[in-house]
Amino acid sequence: MRFKPVALFAALALVAACESTSEETGTASGAGTGAGDVETAVVVTEIEVEEVSLSPVEAEEEMVGIGDRVFFGFDQYTLSGEGRVTLEGQAALLNKYLAITVVIEGHADERGTREYNLALGERRANAAKNYLVVLGVDPGRIRTVTYGEERPAVVGSNDGAWAQNRRAATIVAGSSAGS
């Protein structure tokens, strides 16, 4: 899977042009227009044809490649600029492969009380979901779940670990094409 950067570019190109192409995934027509670089558009066409029936595992790999998680400040649930860019990449993937459904898991660091952290994780998952919806992803394809402080990404009692654990992670839940 060496063509990831290209796929990402293609996905971003699609975002720019995809407002009304939700029915057209897998066809090259939408991506070719207005993308500027004809060379790239050709490559995109090939990749799209190859990957139109992504299995959930492949989709998950792509998601991880794009960046499957966004991070939050202490006791915060507003998206950072970096977080928005990550979610824009996710939205491009989701707008390209309409069969994919995702679960957004909201998480908190260990420096709060358990129940409050569940609520905070729920807020974070929804903040990520809402931005994906703004970017054109059908809310019916996104489920949210909070784990509060129960499932840290990094085990540790230090600022670095806590920063990694305050996150909303987008997990590919399924793909009708792949199942």
């Binding site: 649930y77 129940e115 609520a119 729920e122 807020r123 998952a125 929804n126 903040a127 809402n130 949210t144």
Partner: peptide, 9 residues
């Protein structure tokens, strides 16, 4: 109980 919907508990 608490019920959370759309991120609001």
């Amino acid at each position: 109980i608490s019920m959370a919907k759309d991120g609001n508990s």
